[in-house]
C-alpha cells in the first residue's frame, strides 16, 4: 500500500515553475529517496507534503486520504535549513516543539528525557541551546523531529554538516525508526547515502520526475555490461576476444571489460577459464552517483 501518493502536483513561484506535474508514490515502511540537483524542486515538494505551502493544482494523499491540517502530528520534518532558538533551554525547546506537534506536556517531558539519555545529552538539558556544539544542536534537532513518533519522517539533506561519527549514529537511528514501522522520505543530492539506505528513489530534475523505481532495478537497467577481471598472474595482459568483449581499461592487478551486446557472462567465464587463471570476476554496477550525473546530463543536452 502506498503511504504517500502525490498526484500531478504543480507549483509555480513568481513566474518560475518549481514543480511541473509531479507524481510520486511512496510505499509504507520503506526508506524512499527523493533525489535531484540543487533547485530541482525537492524542497518545494517537501514543503507541500508538510502543508507549509499549497500546490497550485494536484493532490497529496496520506494513508489513502487527502492531507488534513491535523496530519502534521503524523509527520516529522527535518528541514535542510534548520535551527533552534538560541536562548531556550535544551529540554524546554524539545518539549515546546513536541507539544506543537500535539503531544501533551507529561508525555513530551518523558520522551524528551528518554531521547536525551539515548544521545547522551542529559547533562545539557538545562543549558541554553547556544552553549551546545553544532553536532549536539543537530542531535537536538533530530530528537525534535522524531519525538512525536510520526508515521512519516521527512529528512532534507540530513547528513549535511554532520561529522562521520555522528552521521553514522544518525543513520543507525533512521534505520531503527524504519524497523519500528515509520515511512522515511529522504531528500538529498548525496548519492552515497542513498545507496546505503534507500530502497526506492525518485529523481527530479528541473521540476520534473525523470527517473523512478527500486534502486537495484535502476542499477540493472543502467548497467553498461562492465566486468572487472582479476587474474592469479596479475602481470599478464588479458587476451583479447572480439566476439565476446572489448577491453576498456587495464590496471596493475585487474582489467575492465565490456561484454558485447547479447553475450552472457557465463560464456565469457567459460572462455576465460580456458585461457587464463581467473582470480575474480565481478559485474560492475553503476553507482547512483553515475546514474544521477548521466541522467541529468542527458536531459540538459
Amino acid at each position: 500500500m502506498n503511504f504517500i501518493e502525490i498526484k500531478d502536483v504543480v507549483k509555480q513561484y513568481d513566474g518560475h515553475l518549481a514543480l511541473d506535474h509531479v507524481s510520486m508514490d511512496v510505499p509504507e515502511g520503506i526508506i524512499y529517496g527523493l533525489l535531484g540537483p540543487n533547485g530541482a524542486g525537492k524542497t518545494s515538494l517537501i514543503r507541500i507534503i508538510n502543508m507549509i505551502t499549497k500546490p497550485d493544482s494536484g493532490e497529496v494523499m496520506l494513508g489513502g486520504k487527502p492531507l488534513q491540517p491535523e496530519d502534521v502530528a503524523q509527520i516529522g520534518y527535518l528541514p535542510e535549513e534548520r535551527g533552534l532558538y538560541k536562548k531556550m533551554k535544551v529540554g524546554d525547546h524539545i518539549v515546546y516543539l513536541a507539544r506543537l506537534k500535539g503531544l501533551d506536556k507529561a508525555t513530551a517531558k518523558k520522551r524528551t528525557y528518554e531521547w536525551l539519555k539515548r544521545f547522551d545529552l542529559t547533562q545539557w538539558e538545562n543549558k541554553k541551546v547556544e552553549a551546545l556544539s553544532k553536532g549536539m544542536q543537530q542531535k537536538v534537532q533530530f530528537i525534535a523531529t522524531v519525538i512525536h513518533e510520526p508515521r512519516l519522517l521527512i529528512f532534507d539533506e540530513p547528513f549535511s554538516g554532520f561529522d562521520p561519527v555522528n552521521a553514522e549514529q544518525l543513520k543507525q537511528e533512521i534505520l531503527r525508526l524504519k524497523e519500528m514501522g515509520a515511512t522515511i522520505l529522504f531528500s538529498t543530492h548525496n548519492m552515497e547515502s542513498v545507496e546505503a539506505v534507500c530502497e526506492r528513489i525518485t529523481l527530479i530534475n528541473s521540476a520534473r520526475v525523470v527517473l523512478e523505481g527500486r534502486v537495484d532495478e535502476i542499477k540493472q537497467t543502467h548497467k553498461k555490461n562492465l566486468y572487472e577481471i582479476e587474474q592469479v598472474q596479475c602481470r599478464e595482459p588479458l587476451p583479447a576476444c572480439e566476439n565476446l568483449y572489448s577491453i576498456e581499461k587495464e590496471t596493475g592487478h585487474s582489467t575492465l571489460i565490456r561484454l558485447n551486446e547479447g553475450v552472457a557472462s557465463r560464456d565469457v567465464i567459460t572462455w576465460l577459464n580456458e585461457h587464463v587463471e581467473l582470480a575474480g570476476f565481478h559485474e560492475l554496477l553503476p553507482s547512483m552517483n553515475e546514474i544521477f550525473i548521466e541522467t541529468v546530463k542527458k536531459l540538459n543536452k
Binding site: V72, I75, Y77, L78, P79, G83, L84, L100, Q141, A144
Partner: peptide, 11 residues
C-alpha cells in the same frame, strides 16, 4: 536562526 521552517511544519 532557521527555526522557522521547523515551526511552520507544526503550525
Amino acid at each position: 536562526n532557521r527555526i522557522v521552517e521547523v515551526i511552520v511544519s507544526s503550525c
